[in-house]
């Protein structure tokens, strides 16, 4: 018979399993030159590889174009949720001040738009900002607990390209020679 502690262990394990990042196996090239890695990323894309990722300690100018990453849809989330927030603020100030609990304030009409514009404005910003952050978290699969690392220096002064094995055009030998050719200081099998 399982002890209560075993059950607890199982529950903790399954919760952990949900949030713990699952790494994929693949090949990683590591650079110390941020210009070289942009060229290497463009060549990786030219090989027909689609699922690869570039890891850098700071934003790289031109990496989106080199990797062929399309523009994020998050601006649309921001825009639509901003409009929704604006509509909600308008409806809510009207409902609270003119319908549900009408009070005359400073001799103004119950529903006085100028007084409510700040609230409507704040609702617009709140909805747009929170949903943008939420969409960004969802899109990046955050939060990730204890994800596998390719190299600890990638948060400091190194750059990496990672190609997972499950990419249809994955070819470890080809990628290794390509990375070396573009000045990678190290190429290794990794999990990310």
């Amino acid at each position: 018979m399982a002890s209560p502690l075993d059950t607890l262990d199982k529950i903790v394990g399954s919760v952990e399993g949900l949030v713990r990042a699952k790494g994929k196996k693949g090949i990683a090239g590591i650079w110390t030159d941020d210009h070289a890695i942009i060229g290497a990323a463009a060549q990786t894309k030219a090989l027909g590889i689609k699922k690869f990722d570039t890891i850098s300690p700071f934003p790289l100018h031109g990496i989106d174009e080199a990797m062929g990453i399309p523009r994020s849809f998050i601006p649309w989330v921001t825009f639509i949720m901003g409009l929704a927030g604006c509509a909600f603020g308008t409806w809510f100030t009207w409902w609270t001040s003119a319908v549900n609990w009408p009070i005359i304030i400073a001799g103004k009409p119950h529903w006085s738009l100028p007084a409510f514009v700040p609230i409507i404005f704040e609702c617009t910003i709140l909805f747009a900002a929170l949903s943008s952050v939420g969409a960004m978290f969802a899109l990046n699969g955050l939060p990730k607990i204890d994800p596998p690392t390719i190299d600890p220096d990638l948060t400091c002064h190194k750059f990496a390209i990672f190609v997972p094995e499950d990419d249809p055009n994955y070819d470890a030998d080809k990628l290794e020679s390509l990375f070396k050719e573009h000045g990678a200081i190290e190429v290794k099998k990794a999990e990310f």
Partner: peptide
């Protein structure tokens, strides 16, 4: 522009 208008409108 709105800040200017709203305060004047409110204080009347």
């Amino acid at each position: 522009a709105f800040s200017q208008y709203m305060l004047i409108w409110y204080a009347n």
